[in-house]
Structures are given as structure tokens and as C-alpha cells.
């Protein structure tokens, strides 16, 4: 993989004043965020906090009501970004009646990636033994890995992964996080969402969301020091309590 410039230079993702509304409900309001190049950032928060919406806005498939989202210096969804940003949706987005290899060959053709990328991506998610199995007959975790492999085709500089470890066994989760770290070490910027707080320990930086608002954007050690909590979940609860008390006062 190409080694992209890491922490120097402008952020990989810059969000200013983002507002997303769904009907009368405001999902994200006046949202700001910077994501450093070559970092592994965890996007954490309970279900319905706006994580998926934020990710969709970053890949440019979310209708927004205001603000700007820039990825690698271009507006989100810009044509120039299409082969530089990999996106894995929360639900696996692969054809169940094709095999894993056929799905990857399909996406490689869409992307214009060479066929050799297919075997490499299958190897990266450790699906060699199931590469020629129909996706419809795979377990949920295997389907998720096929979906993840599609995002590894080509040379994505930014990977936006929406809950990629849901349904995976603990061993596999650990190994996928190791893969994410190696990708980040190679200069890829990863934004990984999760509603499981113990995954916070695996991220370089944490972005905590609640009800569409940014609760915190910091490293885990800094968050623990700031809140006095023992773990990420405690820190998150502390921050919620603090935010609620500020609102009520």
C-alpha cells in the first residue's frame, strides 16, 4: 500500500457546522470535527446517536441541510474521491447469491482495481477457505468480512467503516483491529464506528456522540484523566452527566 503522509499537513476529514435533518428531526446539528491523516479514530456512541448518518455524510451519500464536509481537501462525495475513500455500511452490502470471490470481482470491476486485489483482500480478512462459498450461506461475521474486503480493493486513503466488528467473535475482532492498526501505520485514515465501549481502547482517538452532538474528541488517556473514570464507558457516562447538568443549570 502506498504510504500516505501521516500526521503532518491538513486533516483527512474536516467537518464544519454540519447539519442533517430527517423530516422534523435534527440528526446532526452544527457539528464540527477534524480527523488527522493516517489516524485510527473510533466513532462511539449509543444506537441512534448519529454515527451512521455522520459516516454517510463523510462518504457523500447523505443529504445535508447545512455546513461543509471535506475529505482529502475535496467536498464529500466528490468524483475525485470515489476511488480514494472506502466505505463499509453497517449491514453487509454484498450479493448473497454470489460467492465471496465473485462479489469482490464485481466490486473490483466497478472500481477499476486489478483482479489481483481480489485475492489480496480475501487474504486480508482471512476468508481464503470460504472464498468460493455463497455469501448467503455464510455466518453474519463472514458476511461482514466479505463486505469489509470490498472496501480494501484498490488503494483507499480513507476507510469509513460502520460497525465492522458487529457479530464477530472476540478473536476475530482483535485481529481485525490489528489489521486496522497496520493500515493506519501505512498511512490510511480510518474512521471506525462502534457502540461497544470496550473497543475504545483499540482506537488512537475517540469521537463520542450523543443525540447528534459531539460529546468529546480526544484520546482515551486524556478522556480518563479529564473525567477521572476507570474506563471508556465510565468516561462516556461521566461526560453525559456533565452535559446534562450543564443543560439543566
Amino acid at each position: 500500500m502506498m504510504n500516505y503522509a501521516a500526521d503532518d499537513g491538513p486533516p483527512a476529514i474536516t467537518i464544519r457546522g454540519l447539519r442533517v435533518a430527517r423530516g422534523a428531526q435534527t440528526v446532526l446539528d452544527d457539528f464540527d470535527l477534524d480527523v488527522r491523516r493516517g489516524s485510527l479514530t473510533g466513532l462511539l456512541g449509543p444506537s441512534g446517536s448519529g454515527k451512521s448518518t455522520l459516516m454517510r455524510a463523510i462518504v457523500g451519500v447523505q443529504r445535508t441541510a447545512g455546513g461543509t464536509v471535506e475529505v482529502l481537501g475535496r467536498p464529500a462525495g466528490d468524483r475525485e474521491l470515489r476511488d480514494r475513500v472506502g466505505y463499509v455500511t453497517q449491514a453487509p452490502s454484498v450479493y448473497a447469491d454470489l460467492t465471496a470471490r465473485q462479489n469482490l470481482r464485481y466490486y473490483a470491476r466497478v472500481l477499476g482495481a486489478p483482479i489481483s486485489d481480489v485475492d489480496r483482500a480475501i487474504e486480508q480478512v482471512d476468508l481464503e477457505s470460504h472464498a468460493d462459498h455463497l455469501v448467503g450461506r455464510m455466518s453474519g461475521g463472514q458476511r461482514s468480512r466479505v463486505s469489509l474486503a470490498t472496501a480494501l480493493l484498490g488503494e483507499p486513503e480513507v476507510l469509513v467503516l460502520d460497525e465492522p466488528t458487529v457479530g464477530l467473535d472476540p478473536v476475530l475482532r482483535v485481529q481485525l483491529w490489528e489489521l486496522f492498526h497496520r493500515l493506519a501505520a501505512d498511512g490510511v485514515t480510518l474512521l471506525v464506528s462502534s457502540h461497544v465501549m470496550d473497543e475504545a481502547e483499540r482506537c488512537e482517538r475517540l469521537v463520542l456522540l450523543r443525540d447528534g452532538a459531539l460529546l468529546a474528541d480526544d484520546t482515551l488517556p486524556a478522556l480518563l484523566a479529564r473525567t477521572g473514570a476507570a474506563d471508556a464507558e465510565g468516561a462516556f457516562l461521566e461526560l453525559i452527566e456533565k452535559a446534562d447538568s450543564e443543560v439543566s443549570s
Binding site: M1, M2, R79, E80, D83, R109, V110, L111, G112, A113, P114, S116, D117, R120, E123, Q124, V125, D126, E128, G154, E155, V171, L172, Q175, L176, E178, L179, R182, L183, A185, D186
Partner: peptide, 30 residues
Amino acid sequence: MSTATMTSAPAARSGSVRSATGPLGGLVAS
């Protein structure tokens, strides 16, 4: 899954995506 198999960056990856080919190239690829 063995950790050893989860490679992140084979050398063969560099330059793997073809250059932009415009709407016609996109149509052909799709």
C-alpha cells in the same frame, strides 16, 4: 483466523487503481 494471515499492505498494491476514465470508462467498468 491467524494473525499472520491478516496482511495490510502487499507491495503489489501500489498503482492498482486505474486512472480516471470519465463517464464512458465508468459505464464500461459498470
